[in-house]
Amino acid sequence: MKRSTLRAGLALACALGLSACGGGSGDLYLTGQIYGGVTADGLILQNNGGDDLAVPAGATTFQFGNRISTDDEFSITVKQAPANSSVDKCVVSNGHARANYYTIGQISVSCAINQIAMTVTVNGLTGAGLTLVNGSDKKDVAAGTPSVVMAPVFQDGPYAVKVLNQPVGQTCNVSGGDTGTGAGTVGATPVTSVVVTCTNNAAST
Results as ranks from 00 to 15, higher is better:
1 M>K: 08
3 R>P: 01
5 T>A: 14
8 A>M: 14
8 A>T: 11
11 A>G: 06
13 A>W: 05
15 A>M: 14
15 A>E: 11
17 G>D: 15
19 S>V: 07
20 A>L: 14
21 C>A: 13
25 S>V: 05
27 D>L: 00
27 D>C: 00
28 L>M: 08
30 L>H: 11
34 I>K: 09
34 I>M: 11
35 Y>S: 05
35 Y>R: 15
36 G>C: 10
39 T>R: 08
39 T>D: 13
40 A>V: 00
40 A>L: 06
41 D>F: 06
42 G>K: 01
43 L>T: 10
46 Q>I: 08
47 N>Q: 06
49 G>Q: 06
50 G>E: 03
52 D>A: 15
52 D>G: 00
56 P>Y: 03
57 A>G: 14
57 A>F: 11
57 A>P: 04
58 G>N: 12
60 T>N: 10
60 T>Q: 13
61 T>F: 13
63 Q>G: 13
63 Q>F: 07
64 F>P: 05
66 N>D: 15
68 I>Q: 08
69 S>H: 09
70 T>C: 02
70 T>I: 04
70 T>W: 07
72 D>K: 13
72 D>I: 03
76 I>S: 05
76 I>R: 12
77 T>M: 14
83 A>N: 13
83 A>K: 08
84 N>G: 07
86 S>D: 12
86 S>I: 00
89 K>I: 01
90 C>Q: 05
92 V>S: 06
93 S>N: 14
93 S>L: 11
94 N>H: 14
95 G>H: 14
96 H>S: 12
97 A>M: 09
97 A>F: 12
98 R>F: 10
98 R>G: 00
102 Y>T: 13
103 T>I: 01
110 S>F: 15
112 A>W: 00
113 I>C: 05
114 N>L: 14
114 N>W: 06
115 Q>M: 14
115 Q>R: 14
116 I>D: 10
117 A>R: 04
117 A>I: 01
118 M>R: 01
118 M>H: 01
120 V>Q: 05
123 N>W: 00
123 N>S: 02
124 G>Y: 09
125 L>N: 03
126 T>A: 10
126 T>F: 05
126 T>V: 06
127 G>L: 08
127 G>C: 02
127 G>F: 06
127 G>K: 09
129 G>T: 08
129 G>W: 07
132 L>R: 03
132 L>G: 01
135 G>T: 01
135 G>F: 04
138 K>E: 13
140 D>L: 13
142 A>N: 12
143 A>I: 12
143 A>L: 06
145 T>D: 11
147 S>T: 15
147 S>K: 12
151 A>R: 02
151 A>S: 13
155 Q>N: 04
156 D>I: 05
156 D>C: 03
158 P>D: 09
159 Y>T: 02
163 V>T: 08
166 Q>H: 07
167 P>Y: 06
167 P>V: 02
167 P>M: 04
171 T>Y: 02
174 V>F: 10
175 S>G: 11
176 G>S: 09
177 G>N: 08
179 T>A: 10
181 T>W: 01
181 T>K: 15
182 G>C: 02
183 A>P: 12
183 A>E: 05
186 V>N: 05
187 G>C: 07
188 A>Q: 08
190 P>R: 02
190 P>G: 04
193 S>V: 00
193 S>C: 02
194 V>G: 11
195 V>R: 03
196 V>N: 03
202 A>H: 09
203 A>D: 10
204 S>G: 00
205 T>N: 08
205 T>K: 10
